[in-house]
Design a protein around this nucleic acid. Sequence first.
DNA 1: TCTGGGGTCCTAGGACCC
DNA 2: TCTGGGGTCCTAGGACCC
Length: 421
Amino acid sequence: MNNTVFVLADCNNFYVSCERVFDPSLDNKPVVVLSNNDGCVVSRSNEAKSLGIPMGAPYHKYEQVIKNNNVAVFSSNYQFYGDMSERVMDSLKIMNNSLEIYSIDEAFIRLKNPKNLNIFNKILTTRENVSKWTGIPMSFGIAHTKTLSKIANRIAKKKTNVGVFDIRQDDVCDKLIKKMPVEDIWGISVNWGIRLRSLGVSTIYDLKKSNPGFIKKNLGIVLERIVYELNGIPCLDLEESSPKKNIMSSKSFGKPIEDLKHIEEALSSYTSRACEKLRSQKSKCKGIYVFIKTNSFQPHRPQYRNGLSFEFELPTSDTRIIVSKAKEIMKIIYRKGFSFHKCGIILLDLVPENHKQSHFFAYNDNDSQEEFMNLVDNLNKSMGPKTLFYLSQGINKEWQMRSNNRSKRYTTKWSEILEVN
DNA sequence: TCTGGGGTCCTAGGACCC
DNA sequence: TCTGGGGTCCTAGGACCC
């Protein structure tokens, strides 16, 4: 048996928990947080889960249940959640060096040579400290591989009071996973569940006992790795922060839009956001992909979708260059007479910003461009997002997303700081 | 009326080469 | 008349994740 230990740390009902930190009257009450545009339910308190509101449910379908049960409803407030996430991750980092931030509310911790350590107690302390420092409740799963730590985490969340579960004992593990469906594994969803079941594999234990070669032949290398991981043989290591390879920014509009001018405004705004992210990870992009689509949830309406990519002569992170090219592409893919629902941009093939592959013919004015963009970024950082923005993003914003119940940005905006009376 | 947004990795198949 | 086999690279699309 290998000696490395992986711990998956996961925030409980993260967005709801964030809201509760600044409004304790929400404790023990049903609470949901909606996606952008108030579209779907993306975070639920345990009380809301008990009411049968599923993850990802369209809000409008559950509006009645929500009203009847006095469920508190919040629009998503990503500035706030992002900041709370940073606090949680920083807390984890103080206590554990090897950390992989896997998503806004999850991180893997790797403990090397943990022989002389009482891991369970160490993790209990970690959990207490995060709760004390940030107010966010977490669950922890301890195991020999990442895949098993995910399973341990699920058990910690559902079946323990302390929020920590160690699954390293083989007999303990086997007993539990005999009762768990194969779809409870990280990386196995409905589709693969169906194929596995057709091969006679229906529980996690069944998959653990499968022949890796047979699984590889029938389902590919990803599933084969999972079989090894279930047996305590790590195939996945910590992936310490690597820069993104693509950056996307897209949103559905607050209402259907036909006018090219409004679409261009929205696109400018999303592009500008994508470029900020690009520069903040110190990258440039070699190309872009721009797309537009009608609402596929309304199949009786005329449907249209299109997208087109473009490659720059030189990698760039200049908002002005990227916005103007994105708008050119939009003019090509746009068609008059459709009600559009969403558009977006993906920045492709990102390279480090100092990777200056000079092009013999291309005009190169990088330095003054970079100075200008830095100025804009710094100003927006210190004075608040969108202090300075491009006129092409529009003023009236016909396309602005719906966000009717957003809480205050308690931790990132002075004007919205919590007041105690 | 109202169904999110942002990622990663793998595979199959075509183009091309020797 | 005969028309291989093996390799690489690229891309689109599928599957998964939170």
